[in-house]
Amino acid sequence: MKVRVDRDCCEGHGRCYAIAPALFEPDEIGESREIGDGAVPSDQENRARLAVANCPEQAITIEES
């Protein structure tokens, strides 16, 4: 599983990096990017789904592999 932040949609609400700090981090203006290549360790899959479900801008997508 991988997560990806659509940087055009992200407005920096910060819900994702609060819920899943191992998967997302804020840049210097509070907008989010996935950490590394966005790969989700299996123990973080639930958090990845929660981040998607709580992003007000629906800016996060999950690619299942």
């Binding site: 407005e11 920096g12 609400h13 910060g14 929660l50 479900a53 007000p56």
Partner: peptide, 23 residues
């Protein structure tokens, strides 16, 4: 509540600039 895509700080380009401070 686990799933909570609320709009308290607005939506789109005017997303509350102070939301991190307010939280």
């Amino acid at each position: 509540r686990q799933v909570n895509r609320h709009a308290t700080f607005g939506l789109g380009i005017h997303r509350c600039l102070g939301s991190h401070l307010a939280r």
